[in-house]
Design a protein around this nucleic acid. Structure first.
Length: 659
DNA sequence: CAAACACTGGTTTTT
DNA sequence: CCAGTGTTTG
């Protein structure tokens, strides 16, 4: 597609944005108003203006958004786009670190993921039976929040987990140890990746020069989700690199990661020579879908000042389907999908948006039962699942014998080795110089099978044959792992190893293979199914940001789900939940289908100490005019699988006792 | 004292 | 369905 066609497709505001001459620019745009399209067009425009594609860096917040943009760019620009980079903040920083490690004071390092962090915190806080220290996961959250928001530890504790504030001293001691340990081992956690780049940019004008030569323009997607740490990455580049950002404060749903929409609100004050433009017309959805979405924001105590208007005009009114329990809810969705498929709508025109991976389980169950092909995005990633990590631990120690976390994981796989023994042994092993010495020590120890030790030796010489390494590693561990997981779906887990082997195909070195997937794990169903296969998409709302689909189902719009029970009573948390639901609603192009259980469907709102209303259930007072309410009575299960979906649906006023 | 084993409860969201 | 806990065993 040529540049002109692309630009011609834009409306006047989008065109103005894409072709602006301002050095820095922020586009404020509602859901479905063409943010991504504008970014793509902007990239095209700049390339056409003579800026080399490889100097344009598109930054996104999640891997999913990054790949979405890459797809669209390729679709629209074809060869013109060659060299254009679209990546997450983390991948971008890794790219810089890899190109010039010395400039950042690094020699060799390995990236640790959340599981590794958890293991470290668990070791550091000790068994801690009597100790009042927060759990490893909580420590991890507090630590990360403090890093991402760049606030003091005590402030982070107040924000994340106020009740542990009395133990601040102990917590801070554990965190000190954590940082020290990381440094000794040359580990970088997710936050370090950004932080090390940001700090060095702040201190070194030469480094800024270097980055500015690599990329002259940055296009930042979902600006409302950037947090202070990410901002500190961009800030030193101001004036040297053009900044083009798009965002929507009504879609900020990453508060738990420190997202700060001040970056959007105060853009003009923070960025010199900045222009702020807005896009108002929604091209995605029909007016009925937007009416419901608009209503959700309008009843909020926060003034979002968002009123989306549909360019496409009117269509089908959203429906709210009420079921006696969550099984029937899930089954009905499966039924409804099947019916639509029989009426020649491909599976892939449908998307089911869930709040959490946990919430997806009922739906998955119903899909499997009804043979509906689907892929789940946002669930446990293949390379994050326990058994695959076990497998990778062997590869990790072979690739980097100083990786004590990998040693811990590997050693504890074997019978007779627990935390304590593994930790002692791994400390010893890391002092040994050669593979042979380490293997000898392991033989002497006697708990690891001779076969595995032999394979560990063989791996050392095979580093560049990734697939062979994986085959060997599988060989080494299968017997033991089948024992360890004998009561936990072993037969399903073995199959994943074949997928890992498949993944390895494109990789040339073991180290490179391992690293790539720390930052970009792939979900199991994504590996199994080619992207363009005709399947229903089951996705968490957080992963779905930026996505759209003709028919969208939003299950579990039930009391204690939206907002989630955990957020109840906390004004900011509840409002973030509202935005989550808003994001879910605004994914739909033609049809929005809500489902819920018929629990006591009213909950009383609270008021916080500042007198602000805290909603306890967003669909309290949902005006009947906005949705078609359908109550699905219990269907007799005994008569077989015959779920009759549109039994004459009762249409009644919402909010009453239905039975 | 460390590890295995059996059991229970309680589940956000992402890099 | 996993992690964390408590109890028994080596």
């Amino acid at each position: 597609m040529s540049l002109n066609t692309l630009i011609d497709e834009l409306n006047p505001q989008q065109k103005q944005a894409a072709t602006t001459t301002a050095k820095n620019c922020l586009i404020l745009a509602g859901a479905g108003c063409g943010k991504t399209k504008t970014i793509v067009a902007r990239a095209a425009y700049l390339i056409d203006q003579g800026i080399p594609a490889q100097q344009i860096q598109i930054l996104t917040f999640t891997r999913r958004a990054a790949s979405e943009i890459v797809t669209r760019v390729e679709q629209h620009l074809g060869v013109m786009a060659k060299g254009l980079r679209a990546s997450t903040f983390h991948t971008f920083c890794m790219y810089l670190l890899k190109r010039n490690p010395q400039a950042f004071g690094l020699t060799q390092f390995s990236i640790i993921d959340r599981d590794d962090q958890l293991l470290m915190f668990r070791l550091l806080r000790g068994k801690g039976r009597e100790s009042n220290l927060p759990k490893a996961a909580q420590l991890c959250d507090i630590y990360s929040f403090a890093r991402n928001t760049q606030v003091k530890l005590s402030d982070a504790i107040i924000q994340v987990l106020p009740e542990v504030l009395p133990f601040k001293a102990e917590i801070s001691e554990v965190m000190r140890q954590y940082e020290q340990r990381k440094q000794e081992r040359n580990y970088l956690d997710y936050d370090d990746i950004l932080s090390i780049v940001a700090v060095n940019l702040q201190q070194s004008p030469e480094l800024v020069d270097w980055v500015a030569r690599l990329c002259s323009v940055m296009l930042v997607d979902e600006m409302q989700d950037t947090n202070p740490l990410q901002w500190s990455l961009l800030e030193p580049l101001l004036g040297r690199v053009e900044l083009f950002c798009v965002g929507d404060d009504a879609q900020s749903i990453y508060g738990f990661r420190g997202a700060d929409f001040e970056n959007v609100h105060h853009f003009k004050e923070r960025v010199p020579n900045a222009e702020v433009l807005t896009l108002q017309e929604n091209y995605r959805s029909t007016q009925e879908i937007l009416d419901l979405s608009n209503w959700l924001l309008r009843v909020s105590p926060i003034d979002y000042n968002k009123q989306l208007t549909a360019y496409r005009g009117t269509g089908i009114k959203p429906s709210l389907n009420i079921f006696p329990n969550e099984f029937e809810e899930a089954n009905w969705i499966a039924q409804d999908l099947q019916q639509r498929h029989q009426q020649d709508t491909p599976w892939n025109k449908h998307m089911v948006l869930v709040r959490s991976s946990y919430a997806a389980r009922h739906i998955e169950g119903a899909f499997i039962k009804s043979n509906i092909p689907y892929r789940f995005i946002g669930g446990t990633k293949l390379l994050e699942s326990a058994h695959v990590k076990d497998l990778l631990s062997l590869l990790r120690i072979s690739s980097n014998p100083q990786d004590d976390l990998a040693w811990m994981r590997f050693l504890t796989l074997w019978d007779g080795v627990g935390d304590v023994g593994a930790s002692r042994l791994s400390a010893e092993l890391m002092l040994l110089e050669s593979v042979d010495a380490r293997c000898e020590r392991l033989e002497q120890h006697g708990k690891v099978t001779p076969k595995a030790i032999l394979i560990l030796k063989q791996l050392a010489v095979l580093q560049n044959e990734v697939q062979a390494c994986i085959t060997l590693a599988i060989d080494a561990l299968t017997e033991q792992l089948s024992q360890n997981y004998k009561n936990q779906d072993w037969s399903r887990r073995v199959k994943d190893f074949e997928l890992v082997k498949q993944l390895a195909e494109k990789h040339v070195g073991l180290g490179e293979f391992l690293e790539e997937y720390v930052l970009e794990p792939i979900s199991i169903s994504e590996v199994e199914r080619a992207k363009d296969q005709d399947v229903v998409t089951l996705i968490t709302v957080h992963s779905a940001k930026g996505a759209e689909q003709q028919v969208c189902y939003v299950p579990h719009v039930t009391v204690n789900q939206y907002p989630h029970a955990r957020a109840q009573g906390d004004f900011d948390a509840v409002e973030e939940e509202r935005r989550v639901l808003y994001v879910a609603f605004t994914r739909a192009q033609n049809e929005l289908i809500l489902t819920k259980q018929d629990l006591n469907s009213w909950a009383y709102d609270q008021t916080d100490e500042q007198g602000r209303k805290i909603s306890s259930y967003f669909l309290n007072d949902l005006p009947t005019a906005l949705v078609d309410v359908r109550v699905h009575k219990r269907v007799p299960m005994a008569s077989g699988t015959n779920f009759q979906h549109n039994k004459p649906a009762t249409r009644i006023t919402f909010g009453l006792d239905f039975d």
